[in-house]
Design a protein around this nucleic acid. Structure first.
Length: 826
RNA sequence: GCGGGCGUGGCGGAAUUGGCAGACGCGCCGGAUUUAGGAUCCGGUGGGGCAACCCGUGAAGGUUCAAGUCCUUUCGUCCGCACCA
C-alpha cells in the first residue's frame, strides 16, 4: 500500500483548488449566507503559530458551514500600513512598499500552504491606493459630519516611535508597540470624535450576546460612564464659581476641602500676587517631571498644597480650604473635586496626611464602626446624618433628592462623564494613509475634493527616523490647491493611525474591487453583519472598539447596513511553549514552516485544533504533534484498507451473522461521531472534542477489521463518512482519500453527513447500582426501562441482594439508562 | 484595591441538564510482528491494597438519595483595569 506522503498530497490539492477557483464566493439568494472572518494580519514577514491557530479555527468553521449548505464568505487581506515597514526602510534602505509587498507574498504563500479556503479574489491590502482612497473618503465624511477636528492639546508622545499615540495605544504608561515610556507634548493633532458615540458604544454592548463577557467588560470599563452631578461652589472674595463633578452628591454636607488639578486654569488667577504664588509654581514644576505613568499611579503618595483661598459650600455655606494636589487630573470631569474624606478613600488618605477635618455624613448602621472616629473611609450604603434637611434618607435616595434640589436652586446639574477620550488619529510617520486635508491661509482647513482622491503617498521622501513626518522631505507632496478658493495651499503632512484602515476592512471585503464607491450597499447588505469574528483578545479595546465606532458612523450616514459589525466573537487563546508565550527573546519559538515541512499542513492544523479548546491557551507539544501525525497515518491506512477490501468483495452480499455485533458497533460509532462532530463545531466550536470523537470512530474501524467479517457496503460507508467528517480539519489528506474512493469532485462541495438516531440507541445498556450512593454492582438492562422497572431489576440482582437483606429501604431512585440508587438503613 | 477567568492522573485535556470522574491524545508498561531497531497492531495504565475494599476533581464546611458541577468560607494562579472624583 502507498505510504502517506503529505508534501506530495498537499501541493497537489492546493494547485487543484486554485485552478478550479474552488473558494470563490458570490451573492446567492438561494442559500443562507454566513460571513466568517478572522482578524487580518500585519505582514510582518512570516506566519507565527498564533496566526496558524487563528486561521485554522476559522478554516474549519468555513469548510464545515459550506458543507452544511451555507454560502460562506471567508476572505483574507493585509493590515499593511505600519511602523515596522518604515523602520525596515530606515535600517536597511528598502522602501516600505517593497518590504511590505515581499512580506505579503511570503505570507500569502504560507497561508496557501496551510490549505485555508479563502476567496482570494477579494484580497485587499490597506496600503494600496485602491483601498486607502476609501479610507480617506471615510475620513472626509467624518470631517463633513463635524466628527473630525484638529486641536492643540497635550498628547502622548512615544520618543522611540517618534510619533503621537492614542490613549488606547498607551498601556501602563508605555507605548503599546515598542514599550518605550510615553511622554507628553503639546501638539496640534487630528482627532475623531468617538466620544459622541460613547453612549451608543456602551449601551449596544448589551445586544452583543455572542461576545465573551470579558471583552464587553473591558469595553465598558474603557468607556467608563459615570453619572453624577456638576456643582458650583462659591469662592470667597471672588465672583468666580468653582465647578466640580461628583458621583456622590449625597455626601455634599461632608465636604471639608476642595482640590484643583495643578493645571486648572483658576489656579493662577486665585494665587497671583499672593504669598502662595511661588509655592504653587514650584509644586507644579515638580509634577511636570513626573511621567503620566507615575502621575496616574495609585501607589504614588498623595501630595498637595493649600493655595490660600477658600471655597463656599452651596448647601450649607461652610468655608473650606482650596488645595491643589497630584491626585486630581485636569482631563477628567472639570479638573476640580470636592473632597469628602469620611466617604472617599483617596480624600481620607489626603485628609489624614494634611490634618484636615473629617465629617461623617452617612451612618453605616454598624456598631463596630465608630462614625466619629473613622479608621478608614466608609464607602458603602447608609443613612444620611449631619446633612440638614436630608438627614434620615438612604444615601441612594439622597443622590436623587439632592441632585433635584441642586437643579431647582440652579447650583448644580445632573451630569454624565466618560473616561473615553476623543481618538487622536494623526501620526508623524510616512507609512500610513495620508490625511486628505489641505490648509489654506484664507479658507482654513478644507478636505481634498473627493474626485481628487486618493491623495497618494509620495515616493520622493527620505527616511531618517527623526523629527517630523518624512512627508515633509517630499518636494512635490506639500504644495496643494485650495479646494475652495483655488489659491495656494498646503497639505497635511501627517498620516493616519493604522487602526483607521482596519476599522472598516470587513465592509470592503463585501465588494473589494469596487472603484466607484467605498462598497456597494446591496452587497454589504447581503453579507453583513459578520456572523463570526475570530481573533486575539489583545484587540478588545483597540480594534474592536474602533470598528464598532466606524460601523455606527457609516450606518448613520447611510452606508453600513448594520450598527454592530460583529455578531459573534471568538477570542482565541495564545500559543505557549514551556508555559510561556512564544518569543524570540525566550528562544521558545516553533516556526510553522518547520512543522509543515516535517509533517505537513494537515498535521499542524490537526494538532493545533486538538490540543486545546480554541479560546484557551495552547501548550505546544512536539510529542503531541507526533501523535497527530500518527493519527493521520492511521486514517490513511484504514481508509485505504476499507476501500480495497470493499472493492474486492462482491457487492451486495449480506453480512455474515457472526459479524452482526461488530457491524452494529461500527455503525453506532460512526453515527455517534457524525452527531458529536456536528454539534461540537456547529454549536460551540469545540474542535478538540470533535476530533476525539473522530478518533473513537477510527478506533472502531480498526476493531471492525479485527472482527474478521466484512460488509463491503458498510465498509465503504464508514470510510467515506470518516473522510467527510475529517475534511474541515485536514482537507488535503481527505481530498486524496476522497479521490481514492472514486469521487471526481472535491470533498469541499459535498454535503455534511446526517446521522441515524436509531443506530445510536443500543439494545441494552449497563447501569450502575448504588447502595447509599456507593456503587455495589452493575447491571445489563434493556434501554429505556422506567425508574420503577430499573429499581425492581436491581433488587432482584443477586449481587445486590446481600446489601439490602435485613435492612429497611428508605428510598429508591432510578435514572433511566444511567443508574439506580437504593437508600437503606440498619 | 476593583473586575473576570482558572485550579481534575506523570502531561494536554473530557465530563452538554446535579446521575458510573478521568473520554480522546501524549507518556509509560506489557504482548504480537521483526535478524535488530524503528514503524505497525493488540492489551494495560488515578492512588493505596495479594484481595474484598478504601481513598480520590486546590483546601474546609454545607445542601442532596447523589456534587468536578449548586451554596458558604478559604488558598493558589493567570488576565484585565487601576488616584476617573
Amino acid at each position: 500500500m502507498k505510504k502517506y506522503e503529505p508534501a506530495e498530497i498537499e501541493t497537489k490539492w492546493q494547485h487543484r483548488w486554485e485552478e478550479e477557483k474552488l473558494f470563490a464566493t458570490g451573492e446567492d439568494a438561494e442559500r443562507e449566507n454566513f460571513y466568517l472572518l478572522e482578524m487580518f494580519p500585519y505582514p510582518s514577514g512570516k506566519l507565527h503559530m498564533g496566526h496558524v491557530r487563528n486561521y485554522s479555527i476559522g478554516d474549519v468553521a468555513a469548510r464545515f458551514l459550506t458543507m452544511k449548505g451555507y454560502n460562506v464568505l471567508h476572505p483574507m487581506g493585509w493590515d499593511a500600513f505600519g511602523l515596522p515597514a518604515e523602520n525596515a526602510a530606515i535600517k536597511n534602505g528598502i522602501h516600505p512598499y517593497i518590504w511590505t509587498k515581499e512580506n505579503i507574498g511570503e505570507m500569502r504563500a504560507q497561508l496557501k500552504q496551510l490549505g485555508f479556503a479563502y476567496d482570494w479574489n477579494r484580497e485587499i491590502a490597506t496600503c494600496n491606493p485602491g483601498y486607502y482612497r476609501w479610507t480617506q473618503w471615510i475620513f472626509i465624511q467624518f470631517y463633513k459630519a463635524g466628527l473630525a477636528y484638529k486641536k492643540k492639546n497635550p498628547v502622548n508622545w512615544c520618543p522611540s516611535c517618534e510619533t503621537v499615540l492614542a490613549n488606547e495605544q498607551v498601556v501602563d504608561g508605555r507605548c503599546e508597540r515598542c514599550g518605550a515610556e510615553v511622554g507628553k507634548r503639546d501638539l496640534e493633532q487630528w482627532y475623531l470624535k468617538i466620544t459622541d458615540y460613547a453612549d451608543r458604544l456602551l449601551s449596544d454592548l448589551d445586544t452583543l450576546d455572542g461576545w465573551p463577557a470579558k471583552v464587553k467588560t473591558m469595553q465598558r470599563n474603557w468607556i467608563g460612564r459615570s453619572t453624577g452631578a456638576e456643582v458650583d461652589f462659591g469662592i470667597k472674595e471672588s465672583d468666580r464659581k468653582l465647578r466640580i463633578f461628583t458621583t456622590r452628591p449625597d455626601t455634599l454636607f461632608g465636604v471639608t476641602y476642595m482640590v484643583l488639578a495643578p493645571e486648572h486654569p483658576y489656579v493662577d488667577e486665585l494665587t497671583s500676587g499672593t504669598d502662595y504664588e511661588a509655592q504653587v509654581a514650584a509644586f507644579r514644576d515638580k509634577l511636570q517631571y513626573l511621567s503620566d505613568r507615575d502621575r496616574n499611579s495609585t501607589t504614588l503618595e498623595k501630595e498637595g498644597l493649600f493655595i490660600g483661598r477658600y471655597a463656599v459650600n452651596p448647601l450649607n455655606g461652610a468655608e473650606i480650604p482650596i488645595y491643589i494636589a497630584n491626585y486630581v487630573l485636569m482631563d477628567y470631569g472639570t479638573g476640580a473635586i470636592m473632597a469628602v474624606p469620611a466617604h472617599d478613600t483617596r480624600d481620607f488618605e489626603f485628609a489624614v496626611k494634611y490634618d484636615l477635618p473629617i465629617i461623617p455624613v452617612i451612618d453605616p448602621g454598624n456598631p463596630d464602626i465608630d462614625t466619629e472616629n473613622l479608621k478608614e473611609a466608609f464607602v458603602a450604603e447608609g443613612v444620611l446624618i449631619n446633612s440638614g434637611a436630608f438627614n434620615g434618607l438612604n444615601n441612594k435616595e439622597a443622590i436623587v433628592k439632592i441632585t433635584d434640589y441642586l437643579e431647582a436652586e440652579h447650583i448644580g446639574v445632573k451630569s454624565v462623564n466618560f473616561r473615553l477620550r476623543d481618538w487622536l488619529i494623526s501620526r508623524q510617520r510616512y507609512w500610513g494613509t495620508p490625511i486628505p486635508m489641505i490648509y489654506c491661509k484664507n479658507c482654513g482647513w478644507q478636505p481634498e475634493k473627493e474626485e481628487n482622491l486618493p491623495v497618494l503617498l509620495p515616493t520622493d521622501v527620505e527616511f531618517s527616523g527623526k523629527g517630523e513626518s518624512p512627508l515633509t522631505t517630499s518636494k512635490s507632496f506639500r504644495a496643494a490647491v485650495c479646494p475652495v478658493c483655488g489659491g495656494e495651499a498646503e497639505r497635511e503632512i501627517d498620516t493616519m493611525d493604522t487602526f483607521l484602515d482596519s476599522s472598516w476592512y470587513f465592509l470592503r471585503f463585501c465588494d473589494a474591487r469596487n472603484e466607484e464607491e467605498v462598497f456597494d450597499r446591496a452587497k454589504a447588505g447581503y453579507w453583513m453583519p459578520i456572523d463570526q469574528y475570530i481573533g486575539g483578545v489583545e484587540h478588545a479595546i483597540l480594534h474592536l472598539l474602533y470598528a464598532r465606532f466606524f460601523t455606527k458612523f457609516l450606518s448613520d450616514i447611510g452606508w453600513a447596513p448594520v450598527i454592530e459589525p460583529f455578531m459573534n466573537l471568538l477570542t482565541q487563546g495564545m500559543v505557549l511553549k514551556d508555559g510561556a508565550k512564544m518569543s524570540k527573546s525566550l528562544g521558545n519559538v516553533v516556526s510553522p514552516e518547520e512543522i509543515i515541512e516535517k509533517y505537513g499542513a494537515d498535521t499542524a492544523r490537526l494538532f493545533i485544533l486538538f490540543a486545546s479548546p480554541p479560546e484557551k491557551e495552547l501548550e505546544w507539544s512536539d510529542a503531541g504533534v507526533e501523535g497527530s501525525y500518527r493519527f493521520l497515518n492511521r486514517v490513511y491506512r484504514i481508509v485505504n484498507e476499507f476501500l480495497e477490501i470493499a472493492a474486492g468483495s462482491p457487492a451486495g452480499e449480506p453480512p455474515a451473522a457472526a459479524g452482526a455485533d461488530a457491524a452494529k458497533d461500527l455503525t453506532r460509532a460512526m453515527n455517534a461521531a457524525i452527531k458529536k462532530v456536528g454539534e461540537d463545531i456547529g454549536r460551540r466550536f469545540n474542535f478538540n472534542t470533535a476530533i476525539s470523537s473522530i478518533m473513537e470512530f477510527v478506533n472502531a474501524m480498526y476493531r471492525y477489521k479485527d472482527a474478521g467479517t466484512f460488509d463491503p457496503g458498510l465498509a465503504r460507508r464508514a470510510a467515506e463518512t470518516l473522510i467527510l467528517l475529517l475534511s474541515p480539519f485536514t482537507p488535503h489528506i481527505c481530498e486524496e482519500l476522497w479521490e481514492a474512493a472514486g469521487h471526481e469532485a472535491s470533498v469541499y462541495g459535498e454535503a455534511w453527513p446526517e446521522f441515524d438516531e436509531d443506530a445510536l440507541t443500543l439494545d441494552t445498556v449497563e447501569i450502575a447500582v448504588q447502595i447509599n450512593g456507593k456503587i455495589r454492582g452493575r447491571l445489563q438492562v434493556r434501554t429505556g426501562l422506567s425508574p420503577d422497572a430499573l429499581v425492581e431489576a436491581a433488587l432482584a440482582d443477586e449481587a445486590i441482594a446481600p446489601f439490602v437483606a435485613g435492612k429497611e429501604i428508605i428510598k429508591k431512585i432510578g435514572v433511566p439508562d444511567k443508574l439506580v440508587n437504593i437508600v437503606v438503613k440498619g
